[in-house]
Design a protein around this nucleic acid. Structure first.
Length: 289
DNA sequence: CTCGGCCTGCTC
DNA sequence: GAGCAGGCCGAG
């Protein structure tokens, strides 16, 4: 189990999937778990699911974008927003293209949404824990939907100064502030630990107390870690796969995450793990202050 | 802001 | 059988 859809994985999925589905028409859509389409929890979720499917059928897919950890399928009318939650996966099957490995055979009992596209292409949404979300947005609804999200790490607006402004006056730990998506959007538990190691900042440091020098390091580390993770097609700890069933390779480049007790790659002292912001946190007590 | 809840499966 | 896991949301 255990996937890791943070920004690099979602971006990898976007790149792979877009090639296979852009320009195709959704001929058929079926959803087995209505909860995934719920905008809010009501007693009977089926109407929300039915409405989502009605709006997908017959639509042409124009392209695929990413905002933070969300995937956005742009349609000729409206758009489908997909959040993979903790264990969501998207697979595309194109006739004549062999998947790198076919685990699991699709669709299986965890496959909750199936899109049949023109050209006999099929898209499967699979999600063991069902924390993911599917949401149809009408034109004009997108801005409000993403209003709560902070800066995109690779946008021009994300600078040491805007990062500083976002952290200014905050008492919460820098780890908590990077995990909640309000300041900068797209980091999750793995990449926050890696970013803090690279910028040599202890995770429990209050965000509002960082000097401008450390903010600069933090800003650079966020971009560097994410860029390298995208280059390696994300992190596969156990069985994260992209839509072609390929694994990522960034797990071999993780410096602290999942390496409790192993020597710090810089100073050789053991990496420690404790709880910060209610999350398992891996760091080097000597290098990070 | 912090916490519990949402789910399933794996490890101890 | 308990505890833990990479996400987010809503309640307090």
């Amino acid at each position: 189990m255990n996937l890791m859809p943070e920004l690099p994985e979602v971006e990898t999925i976007r790149r792979v999937l877009e090639r296979k589905i852009a320009g195709r028409t959704i001929q058929c859509a079926s959803l087995r778990v209505p909860k995934l389409a719920a905008s809010r929890l009501t007693r009977d979720l089926r109407p929300q699911a039915a409405s989502l499917l009605r709006r997908l059928r017959g639509r042409k897919i124009l392209g695929l974008r990413r905002r933070a950890k969300y995937l956005i399928l742009d349609l000729d009318a409206g758009r489908l927003v997909v959040h993979l939650g903790m264990t969501g996966q998207l697979f595309a099957r194109v006739p004549g293209e062999k998947p790198c490995c076919d685990l699991p055979a699709l669709p299986d009992k965890h496959t909750h949404l199936i899109l049949e596209l023109s050209g006999r292409v099929r898209v499967y949404y699979r999600d063991i824990r069902k924390f993911g979300r599917l949401r149809f947005l009408k034109p004009g609804e997108e801005e409000a939907f993403f209003r709560h999200l902070g800066l995109e790490p690779f946008s021009r607006g994300f600078t040491p100064w805007t990062l500083d402004a976002g952290l200014h006056g905050k008492k919460a730990s820098v780890k908590a502030l990077l995990l909640n998506q309000h300041v900068v959007a797209g980091l999750g538990n793995i990449y926050v630990d890696e970013v803090l190691f690279r910028s040599r900042i202890a995770p429990q440091t209050p965000g509002g107390r960082l000097t401008s020098e450390r903010i600069r390091r933090l800003h650079a580390a966020i971009r560097e870690v994410l860029r390298e993770a995208i280059r390696f097609r994300g992190t596969t700890l156990s069985d994260y796969f992209d839509p072609e069933s390929r694994r990522g390779a960034f797990q071999f480049r993780l410096k602290v995450y999942g390496r409790e007790g192993e020597p710090c790659p810089v100073c050789g002292r053991p990496i420690i793990k404790n709880v910060v912001a209610q999350r398992g946190t891996h760091w080097c007590r000597h290098c990070q202050r």
